[in-house]
Simulated assay, not measured.
Amino acid sequence: QHTYVVIMAGGVGTRFWPFSRQTYPKQFHDVLGIGRTMLQMTFDRLADICPPENVYIVTSQEYYALTKQQLPQLSDHQILLEPSRRNTAPCIGYACYKIAARDPEANIIVTPADHLILKEKEFTDRVKVALQATAESDILVTLGITPTRPDTGYGYIQFDGLAEKEVKRVKTFTEKPHLELAQAFLESGDYVWNAGIFVWNARSIRKAF
């Protein structure tokens, strides 16, 4: 009952232009042609982890109608409308302070609305491991993706490869390295792509802010 989800859905999707436009960005599109938009798929993906009344959407005022149309089961207080776009940190802070006011013991998952995750069972298993860790300790957990190529378009996380625990300590973050550095990261074996998905409890994120 203390698990909450924050779905960040305020982006304008400029990299997907012209498919994604400011008036109708990609998170509100049925990208795969399966009858569910990326926002709806993100909501569905976390249904086994969090009750629907504990899900919060953070978006822009102009996307309120789209959000309500696609997730009609949400109450108005679950749709948080940012007065202006200030990127990820203020979006997270806004939502987490709202949740902490409701439940100081909250354990919170923060995820973008526009991720494609095909191995959903594996994903939810990883999230449950993170939730267990943040329920027991005041830590900030970020999910990493095992890299398959030296991609220069992603951020990289270096972790403590010697730690035997499933949740490992982060050493460094590197944002979009050049190709030679990305190749070195891949060969080292202790780097993952930064998924931009986070798990923490209300106490730890307030302390961090």
Rank of each mutant, 00 (worst) to 15 (best):
R102D: 03
N201K: 04
P112E: 08
K128H: 14
G35Y: 09
K171N: 09
G144D: 04
D103P: 06
F19N: 14
L162D: 14
D138K: 07
T124Y: 04
Q1R: 10
G144V: 00
Q73H: 08
F159Q: 06
P147F: 11
A65P: 00
A208G: 00
A202Q: 03
N87W: 07
F28A: 01
R203P: 04
A130Q: 13
T111V: 12
F19H: 14
L66Y: 03
P112F: 04
T59D: 09
M41P: 00
A113Q: 01
Q27D: 06
E105C: 08
L181R: 09
L116S: 09
N194K: 07
P25W: 14
D160K: 05
D125C: 02
L32K: 12
C91P: 01
F185I: 00
M8Q: 15
L181D: 11
M41N: 07
D138Q: 11
P51A: 10
T134C: 13
G153N: 11
N87T: 07
D44P: 09
V199C: 12
W200K: 00
T37H: 04
K176P: 01
V127G: 00
G93E: 06
A135N: 12
V170K: 09
A106P: 05
P25G: 11
S188R: 08
L140M: 13
L32W: 10
I57C: 08
I34C: 12
Y64L: 12
I7L: 02
R45W: 01
D160T: 07
E105H: 07
F198I: 02
G11A: 12
K207W: 15
G33L: 07
K119Q: 11
I109M: 07
G161Y: 05
L140I: 13
A65Y: 03
E175T: 12
D44E: 08
I205N: 02
K26I: 06
L80F: 05
R86Q: 11
L74K: 04
K26V: 07
Q27F: 14
S188V: 10
G153H: 11
E62P: 05
I157D: 00
V167M: 10
I34H: 08
L140E: 08
V12K: 13
R102I: 02
V170D: 01
P104A: 03
V141A: 04
F16V: 04
C50F: 05
Q27M: 12
E53I: 04
E187L: 15
E105W: 04
K68C: 13
D114M: 00
F16Q: 13
D44M: 08
R15D: 06
K171G: 05
W200T: 15
M41H: 05
T14M: 08
K207N: 09
D48F: 02
K98W: 03
R15T: 11
Q61E: 15
S20F: 06
A208F: 11
S137Y: 10
A95I: 02
L80G: 02
C50G: 04
E53G: 00
K121I: 14
P150G: 10
H77K: 09
P52R: 14
W17K: 15
A184W: 02
A89K: 11
Y191I: 06
L116D: 11
I99A: 10
L131P: 00
L186Q: 07
T142Q: 09
Q27T: 06
Y63C: 06
I145K: 02
E120N: 10
T172W: 15
